[in-house]
């Protein structure tokens, strides 16, 4: 008969047993600890932002200022990007559509691809570069020069004053910039169509929006808000947690762009999967 060992004895055995871990195992354990600490940090940061968003004394002036900086100051870049996407999309696809005798499908095809995918993703990636890096660098430099500490000793919650307005501004303004880029993309497409052919603006718009259905707008708009939130959150997190030296400002700006761009693509992938299931 097999001998059974009581659970109590096993626990005692495990408690008293000293295990020799190799250096490699210890390193792996340390890396894992750092990873989980970082995840916990991010979660605490997000919870702190949510709490401070709904607390009394919302920094409305700062929010408006950030909306201006995020939205208005990105208009030129987004305008050029929007027109160029539409233009390139049209110039590239027109010859193929002519081959299949489907050139009348061009406005609809461009509109659907711009509204559903190209507009949101490319605009978000441009914003991750421009807005994400600027938030990361600004907050990083404030951390390095002790301005965030100065704010804390002035009895001001820096999450409430610096982070909440920036995250809300990007969450609100980036979807607007995306809609603006979509509109300019369609305009660019019309310009592209008129370079080689001749089509009136009214007819082009009628053909374009004739092919776009209500269901095309909803997922695109919803994911745009997530793109905005992700860009603001990453920029603020990286800047707020920058190290102490001046090189930390560069690292914060750089890692904000890299992380925000990566997360935009991941969010897009998830959004596409969810839309596909619906």
């Amino acid at each position: 008969m097999e001998k059974t060992v009581p659970i109590k004895t096993l626990k005692e055995y495990a408690r008293n047993k000293t295990i020799d871990l190799s250096d490699q195992t210890i390193q792996k354990k340390n890396k894992l600890t750092v990873f989980f600490n970082n995840v916990a940090d991010v979660v605490i940061f997000i919870v702190d932002i949510i709490k401070n968003t709904f607390r009394r004394g919302f920094e409305f002036k700062e929010f408006l200022k950030q909306c201006f900086l995020t939205g208005n100051k990105s208009l030129a870049l987004i305008s050029i990007t929007g027109i160029v996407i539409g233009l390139v999309l049209t110039i590239q696809s027109r010859p193929i559509l002519i081959k299949f005798g489907a050139v009348t499908m061009l406005p609809g095809m461009v509109a659907v691809s711009l509204i559903r995918e190209m507009g949101p993703v490319i605009t978000a990636l441009i914003c991750a570069g421009k807005i994400g890096s600027s938030i990361g660098a600004e907050l990083g430099s404030m951390r390095v020069t002790e301005q965030i500490d100065a704010m804390e000793v002035s009895s001001t919650n820096p999450i409430k004053f610096l982070v909440v307005p920036r995250v809300l501004a990007t969450t609100l303004m980036i979807p607007l910039l995306i809609l603006y880029a979509d509109a300019l993309g369609i305009l660019g497409s019309w310009i592209g169509a008129n370079i080689k052919g001749d089509v009136s603006f009214v007819l082009f718009i009628a053909q374009a929006f004739g092919k776009v259905e209500f269901i095309d707008y909803i997922p695109a708009i919803i994911k745009s808000f997530f793109f905005g939130a992700v860009i603001g959150l990453v920029g603020c997190y990286k800047g707020f947690n920058a190290g102490r030296g001046t090189e930390s400002v560069g690292i914060a700006a750089n890692s904000s762009v890299v992380m925000a761009s990566l997360l935009v693509i991941i969010v897009d992938l998830i959004a596409v999967q969810i839309t596909d299931m619906l």
């Binding site: 430099s141 404030m142 020069t145 002790e146 301005q147 500490d149 100065a150 704010m151």
Partner: peptide, 10 residues
């Protein structure tokens, strides 16, 4: 609290 670098808001 007077910070070493002044910590004025840029």
């Amino acid at each position: 609290f007077l910070f070493q670098g002044g910590a004025l808001y840029d």
